[in-house]
């Protein structure tokens, strides 16, 4: 590949100086497209693989359509009495519910930290920073023990509560509030006789909205992709999200068949909604919030 590449570009360099401007994007475009290929291959593979029967999965070319798509879908949606729909639903409950909760909590806390002075603020900020740095995953086991004692395991709350406060979310809301809500607005509100709560609801929140959408989306995807927390918290498979369900589908022990064809179709079905969601909402992201280039 490299050899032919050199041969085809060399003459250009020598002969076509004036075309340089239009050609300037060629090498970068090729590099970019190579990267694109790398990122897309597994996704394209899963699309083709989902159409195959177990046999075809192992003895037909990767990028050839199979004949098993319909059967795989039927098998997937009838597996364990149609549990797959339930698992997808659970993922949505966790992702939407958890992201919503954490966005509301973050908005309130970030707003307070950015715009008010109060005793203990420094301690909260330090605690927050510590929370951002802490590997939350190491907390999962004690969380499980405590939640079990409190009777929260095997309820949706077992997953929703731990994800509903993310130090990172509060931090982002804080950064965004500091940059986008001027303190003068609060003063103006006070002069007008508006209560703090009303100022927050009527002026603060609308200004925060773009930042909140971003926090919601980051949280949504984070929770949707989460595996360990629900895996440990929920022993009732009716409450499992799709990531845990996929893992259980593929780890059924040596005495059970491993249903790759069905699992791969499940993988495709499981990633489609999130991909669609991300693509659709991409334009609403304020990722400069994360990149810290917010002015």
């Amino acid at each position: 590949m490299t050899a032919t590449g050199i041969r085809s570009t060399r003459p250009d360099i020598a002969s076509a100086r004036p075309r340089r401007r239009t050609r300037g994007g060629f090498v970068p475009t090729v590099v970019l497209l190579a990267a694109v290929a790398y990122f897309l291959v597994p996704v394209v593979w899963v699309v083709f693989a989902a159409t195959k029967t177990t046999g075809e999965l192992f003895n037909t070319p990767s990028f050839a359509m199979g004949t098993g798509f319909g059967d795989n879908l039927v098998q997937l949606f009838t597996y364990q009495g149609g549990a797959f729909v339930q698992w997808m639903g659970n993922s949505f409950v966790y992702a939407i519910g958890g992201a919503l909760l954490s966005t509301i909590v973050s908005a309130a806390a970030g707003y307070a930290l950015a715009l008010y002075d109060f005793p203990g603020k420094k301690a909260v900020m330090i605690g927050l920073l510590g929370g951002v740095l802490l590997p939350t995953i190491t907390l999962t086991i004690p969380q499980y023990m405590l939640f079990a004692e409190w009777g929260l395991t095997n309820t949706y709350w077992a997953v929703l509560l731990p994800v509903s406060v993310t130090p990172f979310g509060v931090y982002l809301a804080f950064v965004y509030a500091r940059a986008s809500v001027p303190r003068e607005l609060l003063e103006a509100g006070r002069v007008d006789g508006s209560s703090e709560g009303r100022t927050f609801g009527a002026i603060g929140l609308p200004l925060l909205l773009p930042g909140l959408v971003t926090i919601f989306l980051l949280q949504f995807i984070g929770i949707w992709n989460n595996f360990l927390l629900p895996y440990i918290m929920q022993s009732d498979s009716d409450l499992a999200p799709v990531t845990v369900a996929m893992y259980l589908m593929l780890n059924r022990g040596g005495s059970e068949p491993i249903l790759y064809a069905m699992a791969i179709t499940g993988a495709l079905v499981a990633i489609l909604p999130v991909i669609a969601f991300v693509l659709f909402l991409q334009r609403f992201w304020r990722l400069d919030l994360v990149s810290g280039s917010l002015k």
Binding site: N225, L250, V278
Partner: peptide, 14 residues
């Protein structure tokens, strides 16, 4: 950006 939407469990399977 697409792989960001793919859970790591599924990425590892693929």
């Amino acid at each position: 950006f697409l792989p960001y939407a793919v859970p790591s469990v599924i990425a590892a399977l693929m």
